[in-house]
Design a protein around this nucleic acid. Sequence first.
DNA 1: CGTAGACCTGAATCGGGTCTCAGGTTTGGG
DNA 2: CCCAAACCTGAGACCCGATTCAGGTCTACG
Lengths: 212, 212
Amino acid sequence: MSELSIGVQPTGVGGRALSSRGLRTRRRLLEAAERVFAELGYHDASIVKITEAAGVGQGTFYLYFDGKKRIFDELVLDLNARVRRAMTEASSKGSTRAERELLGFGAFFRFTAEHPALYRIVRQAEFVSPAILQLHYERLTEGYVAGLRQAMAAGEVAQGDPEVLAWSLMGIGELVGMRWILWGGGTEMPERVFDELARILVRTIGARDLDP
Amino acid sequence: MSELSIGVQPTGVGGRALSSRGLRTRRRLLEAAERVFAELGYHDASIVKITEAAGVGQGTFYLYFDGKKRIFDELVLDLNARVRRAMTEASSKGSTRAERELLGFGAFFRFTAEHPALYRIVRQAEFVSPAILQLHYERLTEGYVAGLRQAMAAGEVAQGDPEVLAWSLMGIGELVGMRWILWGGGTEMPERVFDELARILVRTIGARDLDP
DNA sequence: CGTAGACCTGAATCGGGTCTCAGGTTTGGG
DNA sequence: CCCAAACCTGAGACCCGATTCAGGTCTACG
């Protein structure tokens, strides 16, 4: 992970500064990689296919990334940042913890429907880049734990270790999302399922009440 | 999935009947594959490495399996059957649904600690063999749903769609297991975490009570 | 024993992927 | 308009893995 350009201006290999043209090409490669990895998986995704999808020559790839693993890592972190942003934004609109929770889940499901790559790529990471996978989940928990701890202090949710609860909630989101979004035809989650899930979540966090 | 030998006597390719010697070699390959896939992942696991680990020649592999994907599929189904057996056995010893639930989780965690391959291999399946992945999860839910429906009818757990609840519970097991067993040094789950989890699970299923 | 049939072997073939490099193209500031 | 720097290209060197196959080894049974 020594040279991942996250949060800073992207560079080429060796830290070469990029012009706007270079920046555009780099982004094109990243977007093509998201499509190709999501469709074919890490193994079958080749540099050739990624460059073809991006509409650039093979050699161009190596002006921006060290290799296949490097672009993959960056993709995971990119998706991670995007899904967290979507969830945080949505949940900030709620007034009780339970409400915030449900809004966050809704955002997660919407993101998943729009970017099935999140699942497919994250699962690949188990082997391609275990450290990145861990980072992905840990970053997701971080915000979660903070919010839950606060809600516990306020007596809004059941007392307990917020970390165990946070991972439990993530697990629920992951499998329910997989079952009804990823396998459900790639569209939205049926309202019936979401309503049922809402009842389950409220119980799981031990919320005092859904409304303030 | 046309020719997976599950529940029937294993054969060689083309349905060739096997002598006890052949059966032993086949099993050796399967066990070697579990180790190699778990350690290296599908991509880096090569036939050469599997046959080396099994102590047989490369050509021998093709007397028993069509190729890499075929042995992988069989491995997933094998692990699936084993983990379900472990969970069913353990949970049958409980008297309330909540108790059965906790015993099942305990068995799942123990199995995971002993066979980290379960996680690693199942996650790979996302791409290698999506249909097999789906089968794995569906088989896990099946028994679950039946048990929950019964408990709901008996008023032992909260009313609702047992399927959504089953997937939620599996999600909790999956992520908590990943966090504290797979990443926790490969040993057991800390008692503190399991106790906390027990409280969460009881809330999630909406159990009337832990004891009868 | 002797042998048919099952089993085993690993070198060789074949296909496909990564990455390099010598040379062409585009861009932007002077 | 001009040129240096940045950018782009794709053929090919190189590597590695899946799969085959011609020939050797084991074993049960008559």
